[in-house]
Amino acid sequence: MSMRRWGRRSAAAVLAAVVAAGCTTADGQGDKAGGPGAPRVLTLANGYANLDYEPAVAYFVDRVDEVSGGALRIEVAHEWGDFAVDSEQRVVRDVAAGRADLGWAGTRAFDSLGVRGFQALTAPLLVDSHALQRAVLDSGIPERMLPDLKPLGVTGLALLADGLRRPVGVRKPLLGPADWRGIAFGTARSEAQSSALRGLGAEPFEGMGPIRDRALEQGRIDGFEMYLIGHHINNYALRAPYITANVHLWPQTAALIADTDLLGGLTGAQRDWLREAAADAARRSPQLSDQDGELVVQLCESGVRFALASAADLKGLRDALRPEYARLGQDGRTKSFIAEIERLKARLPRQPALDVPADCLAQRAR
C-alpha cells in the first residue's frame, strides 16, 4: 500500500484502530482483550500510509517489543491526519492532547508550531550525506534540541536520520537557479523550507500524498522534494521522472515524540524500554535510511532519469540561498547549530557521489 492508495483507509477506520489500541486498564496493565498481565499497548501516530517509508521508525516499534520482552507493545495508526496539509502538525498536537501516545514528525514541521530550534537541520544544502547525518546524531546536537519540544506538550525521545530530499522535476531536471525561477514546487508545511524555496525563485506548494498526486495530475506543480525510497514506493517515474542526483536540499530528519503526561504515567521500566528502543533506533537510523545505492537501479529500470548539476549550477544555488542563511542566522542558537554542523561536515572525508549508470543520466537541455 502506497500513499497514492490513501483512500483505502478512512479516518473512521484509523480512529477505530486508535480506540482499540488504547483500551488499557487504569494501571496500564490490560490490553485490548483486557486480560490480566497482558502487555501494555501504546498507539503511535504515523502520518504516512505505512512504515515502509520510515524504516527507522519501524525499527523502533519492533525494538520496543524486543527490549521489553513483549511486555510493552506499539500499535501503529497509519494515515494519521488524513494527509491534510498540516498532517505532521496534527500528529504533534494529537500526541500532546493524548489522542495518541506516541508519534513521529519531520523536524521541518516544528517551526510552524512556534518552535524554531530545529531549523538548522533543514538549512538548505547543508546536511547532504548519510555520513553527515550520523555525525550530527552523534554530536550531542539532538540532546540539545529535543527539550525545545516541551512547550508543545510532547517529549522528544530521539531524532532519527532519514532520507535525503532531492529536487524532482516533472518536465525537466531542476539544476541551476534559472530552472527554479517561477516554478511551483511541492513541499511539506515548513516555514524554513518554504523560505528557502522562495529564495531559489520557486513558489512553494504545500501538500503531500494525495494532495501532491492531484496537483501532478492537474499539471499544477513543476517539481517537488522527495527522497528516493518515497519516489520508488509512489511510482512517480512516469509523472515526475527527473531527479537531481547531486543536489540535497535537506534531510527529512524524524523526531520520535511521546505524550508527556503519558510518560509520567508509565512505570520506570516502561519508560526505560521506550528510551532504550529510541536510542537504538537513532543509532541504527543512518544505516537504515541509506538505501540510495540500491534504489538507483530500481528507479532507472522504472524510467527515472538522474541529472547532475554542474559546478556553476551548485554555486548559483548557494549564492541564491545566502539571504536565507542570513535570515536563519538572526537566531543566535540556530546560527550556532549551523556552524557546528559545518565544522562536522568539514572534518568528514569527501563523500562518494551517487553511482548512476550512464544510460540513466538525463541529457542536459541545450
Rank of each mutant, 00 (worst) to 15 (best):
Q270F: 02
A282L: 08
I243W: 04
W250G: 10
T244M: 10
A237T: 05
A277H: 04
W273A: 10
S285E: 06
W250H: 15
R283N: 08
R283S: 09
R284A: 07
Q291M: 11
V247F: 13
G265N: 02
G268N: 10
A279P: 11
T253H: 07
E294N: 06
L256P: 04
T260Q: 01
Q291V: 09
N234C: 09
R239K: 15
A282S: 14
L238M: 12
H248R: 12
L266C: 10
E294V: 07
Q270G: 02
G268E: 11
L295S: 05
L228D: 14
Q287C: 07
D261G: 09
A254G: 13
S285K: 04
R283P: 07
D292A: 03
L256A: 04
A277G: 08
D272H: 15
A282P: 10
A277L: 09
W250M: 15
Q252I: 11
W250L: 15
G265M: 00
W273G: 09
W250P: 09
E276K: 12
A254V: 15
A240N: 09
I233F: 03
S285Q: 02
F224S: 14
R239I: 14
W250N: 14
R271C: 02
N234W: 05
I229P: 03
R283V: 10
A237C: 03
A281M: 02
A240P: 08
Q291N: 12
L266S: 06
R239C: 15
G265S: 02
Y227A: 13
A277I: 06
R239W: 09
Q252K: 07
L266D: 12
Q287E: 13
T267M: 00
P286E: 02
G293I: 07
E294K: 10
V297D: 09
Q287L: 09
N234K: 13
H231W: 10
S289R: 15
L228W: 13
Y242S: 06
H232S: 14
L263N: 00
P286M: 00
A245H: 00
A279H: 13
E225T: 09
A237D: 04
V296N: 08
E294Y: 02
R283I: 06
I229N: 03
A255N: 06
G264W: 01
A269S: 04
A277P: 08
D261K: 08
D290S: 06
W273I: 06
D272K: 15
I229F: 01
T244W: 09
D290G: 05
D261I: 06
A240T: 12
D261H: 05
W250K: 14
R271N: 07
L249Y: 15
I233E: 11
V247M: 13
P286W: 00
E225S: 14
L295M: 07
P241T: 12
N246A: 07
L249W: 13
R284V: 01
A281Q: 03
F224H: 15
P241G: 13
A255I: 07
Y242T: 02
A255G: 07
W250R: 15
S289P: 15
L228M: 14
T260M: 01
M226R: 11
D280W: 06
T267H: 00
D290N: 06
